[in-house]
Design a binder for these strands. Structure first.
Lengths: 110, 110
DNA sequence: AATATTAATCGTAATATTGCAATTAATAGA
DNA sequence: TCTATTAATTGCAATATTACGATTAATATT
């Protein structure tokens, strides 16, 4: 086997998991932070900054783009990436909702 | 290759990624939500509720325990699981910090 | 047109994850 | 002690991820 049984879970549970999966690599965290830090968009400087090969960075960018967290627009020979605020805020909300539940249930039976 | 190059990234970036990885499966989201919902701790009812085999659930519980998100105490023949509030709140804070950055940088260049 | 620059894609190898059947470990109760 | 119950561990197969060299695609510059 090896394939996740998504049909056993709710839409929201799968959404949270997918979102978490997108953030489940330090390179992707670093990429997002770099895009956030430099107020203007970033191109291929990520390759210099992160120390990973160009195809590797490109693949991580592809994944982030696939779930909609970032957008890329071609500017001459380089590509400019930026956060998609709409999706970003959706994700932010989903995570906040998930962790908010903890406050209501301060169980400490073990 | 195939192994994540954690040495290229900051401690915090690796922490966020590890935390996200722990949440990157709908079964683990469902397990955590179930533990949160039933105010008292849960034992093996997760197997009945989730529709996955017992070894599979056990493995997911092991992963959640490995990163400290949950604790398990033996109660007779069954095992009682509960959230570790300390770690839970740490994670909550880390995520909140990560997503907070978005507000400061409302970039929309592309 | 020829060359340089930038980034995506392809192919491949190494490693990690997911899921479960079979087994084992450990306690509860007869 | 013997049996039932519950959960962890082991072993294995299928699939997914990570990383990068080689190549390709596309625009910019000469």
């Amino acid at each position: 086997m090896g394939a996740t049984k998504t049909d056993l879970f709710t839409k929201k549970q799968n959404e949270i998991a997918m979102m978490a999966k997108a953030l489940a690599h330090p390179a992707r965290i670093a990429i997002l932070q770099e895009i956030l830090k430099t107020n203007s968009c970033i191109c291929g400087s990520l390759v210099n900054d992160l120390g990973l090969a160009q195809p590797t960075i490109s693949q991580h960018l592809k994944e982030l783009k696939a779930i909609g967290l970032i957008r890329g627009t071609i500017e001459g020979t380089s590509v400019c990436y930026c956060i998609n605020p709409k999706v970003w805020n959706q994700y932010k909300q989903l995570f906040a909702d998930f962790f908010k539940e903890s406050i209501k249930n301060e169980n400490n039976c073990c």
